[in-house]
């Protein structure tokens, strides 16, 4: 199993698209920071216009923490897309190049083989999020400095610099669980459809569908609480003034459960399928 994981990691390390994905993350961040640099002050003015009736402001709200939060908000659609492309490629490229046959000529367990793929997919997801977090904090703090974070979630919430940093850190950690779900899902789609293009189209469709469902208000129904898209929004809970840890832990545990089910289903299908 360990050898299989190392082999998968080596493949990931060798393929150029891994680096394209990481490069794309940085490029997206730069675009967001660039637009914030030119529009941010105006947007903050609009946001604070109500408070201007009664208050003067001292200090700058257009700072690194706000930008990290904006990156987090903006990139949560694009990042799963990149991850799904890279992760599904772990298997579809094997189908395409016919390397699966040569692998299974040797005494390799199908379950262990695909499990190692899932393991590497999740590891890569964690590395990508860590890379995103590192670059987001690094670029934002370097360009915009530190300061209080303002977020609108039902109320106008102000967080002091240290508090904001911790909340953003936890949000990235919680977001990792969500991203792992999408990565595992894309690998399962790859197991089902094998073809690279079809897998990418279906993975993209799945992502778009998820985003559309996110906009549907299910109220307080059980559906609303258990739907994976709603559970994947747990990272936002860190920006309510009072953090509901119990709900965040529960949501992420359920989402990890879904991830395990999707993974188990993929392993089962792969195990019982012929290597064509």
């Amino acid at each position: 199993m360990r050898a299989l994981i190392w082999a998968e990691l080596y493949k990931l390390y060798r393929q150029p698209r891994t680096y394209y994905a990481l490069g794309a993350i940085v490029l997206m961040e730069v675009v967001i920071l660039f637009s914030a640099y030119y529009q941010g002050s105006a947007l903050i003015d609009v946001l604070m216009s109500t408070l201007k009736q009664s208050f003067y402001f001292k200090g700058d709200l257009l700072n690194g923490n706000l930008l990290v939060y904006v990156i987090l908000n903006t990139i949560w659609f694009h990042l799963p897309l990149l991850l799904m492309i890279i992760v599904s490629g772990l298997l579809t490229s094997e189908y395409k190049d016919g390397t699966l046959r040569s692998i299974f000529v040797q005494p390799v367990s199908k379950s262990k083989f695909v499990l190692s793929k899932y393991f590497v997919a999740m590891l890569f997801t964690m590395v990508a999020i860590f890379f995103l977090m590192l670059t987001a904090f690094g670029l934002s703090y370097t360009i915009f400095g530190r300061g209080d974070l303002i977020v609108y979630l039902d109320t106008l919430n102000f967080f002091e610099n240290n508090d904001a940093m911790w909340r953003l850190f936890w949000a990235y950690l919680s977001g990792t669980v969500t991203m792992m779900f999408y990565s595992v899902m894309s690998l399962t789609i790859a197991i089902f459809f094998r073809d690279t293009t079809i897998t990418w189209i279906l993975a993209t469709f799945f992502l778009i569908l998820s985003n559309l469902m996110l906009r549907v208000d299910f109220g307080t129904s059980l559906w609303g609480k258990l739907l994976y898209v709603k559970l994947g929004e747990s990272w936002q809970h860190f920006f309510y003034y009072d953090i509901n840890w119990q709900e965040i832990v529960l949501n992420n545990t359920i989402l990890l459960g879904y991830t395990a089910i999707v993974m188990g289903f993929g392993i089962l299908v792969f195990k019982h399928r012929d290597i064509a």
């Binding site: 009664s54 003067y56 402001f57 001292k58 200090g59 700058d60 300061g147 209080d148 610099n161």
Partner: peptide
């Protein structure tokens, strides 16, 4: 006023 942090100062 002087402060190290962001503050809202009441106009009135």
């Amino acid at each position: 006023f002087t402060s190290d942090n962001f503050i809202l100062i009441p106009k009135r």
